[in-house]
Amino acid sequence: MLSAPLEPGFDYTRSYGPLLGRFAAGLRACRILGARGADGKVHVPAVEYDPETAAALSELVPVSPTGTVRTWSWQSAPLSGQPLEQPFAWALIQLDGADTAMLHAVEAPGPEAMRTGMRVHARWAAERRGAITDIACFVPGEGPDERGELPEVPDAVEEMLTSPIHLSYMHSASPQESTYLRELAEGRVVGMRCPVCRKVYVPPRGACPVDGVPTEEEVELGDNATITTFCVVNVPFPGQRIKPPYVCAYILLDGADIPFLHIVLGCAASEVRMGMRVRAAWKPREEWTTNLANIDHFTPNGEPDAPFESYAHHL
């Protein structure tokens, strides 16, 4: 079976709201603030709503950057994006003045240096942006408790946080789709017929959507096709691969029973019609891979338009 990487990513733009905005502003100023709950408990990190009563919380109180490890585990092989590049501990740390423990990283020479009940203190990032990562990590030992020396709570409020998220998948094609893709690499479009309804699916399916059985019998399809319907994409957007404007059309290959999406070139967009007859324009052979993009586009083949009735049941 064929597979290929699929790596979507986006820089999400978070808004904090008033309470978390003050918590984040505190971090930028090297201050850790907790939210006082309805029962007087101090929650760190700050929470917007009381975990017991669901009441909206508003009071923030400073807590110490020093606290006690309540439990921990060892990350022996850190992954990219984690707080530290060398092996470190994940710990639940109850800061002095807080009633809850927060998850963060502890820098330690090895797991033998970690124990529940040990004292740790925050090490601040050199560059801070109003995020939990402003605490670079915690390190063993007591830190300065500046709660008495600093003003109660900073006035500043952070509004936004840019949060890049990138996912890394390995996308696998089904056995039927893999067969079709290998044929594409040889310059052939091969669909498969469902043994029950006899419909020819291209790309072939692991299961016919109507009958639930794999499509099996291979059917080689030609280059000629009918445009069933289409739109003209004029909108640019992030991550777009084809420069607009382009004609995005449902292409029904002769002999197939379902259309697929492709682009149409070779005539003005205003000339493209439902029922227009087109043929595949392949890329040069040396560029062929296991991809439908081996067909660069579809282009008018000069035949008269297909009658509406011939493709109406594919709309």
């Binding site: 064929l2 986006f10 978070r14 739109c231 957007f237 777009q240 697929f260 682009i263 439908l292």
Partner: peptide
């Protein structure tokens, strides 16, 4: 406002033509 739905609805899946253009497309 925390994201972009056009981007999210147009992720180009391997082996296919990257023609998707959001819900409108």
């Amino acid at each position: 406002s925390e994201s972009n739905a056009m981007w999210a609805l147009s992720i180009a899946v391997p082996f296919n033509m990257p023609v998707n253009a959001g819900a409108g497309g």
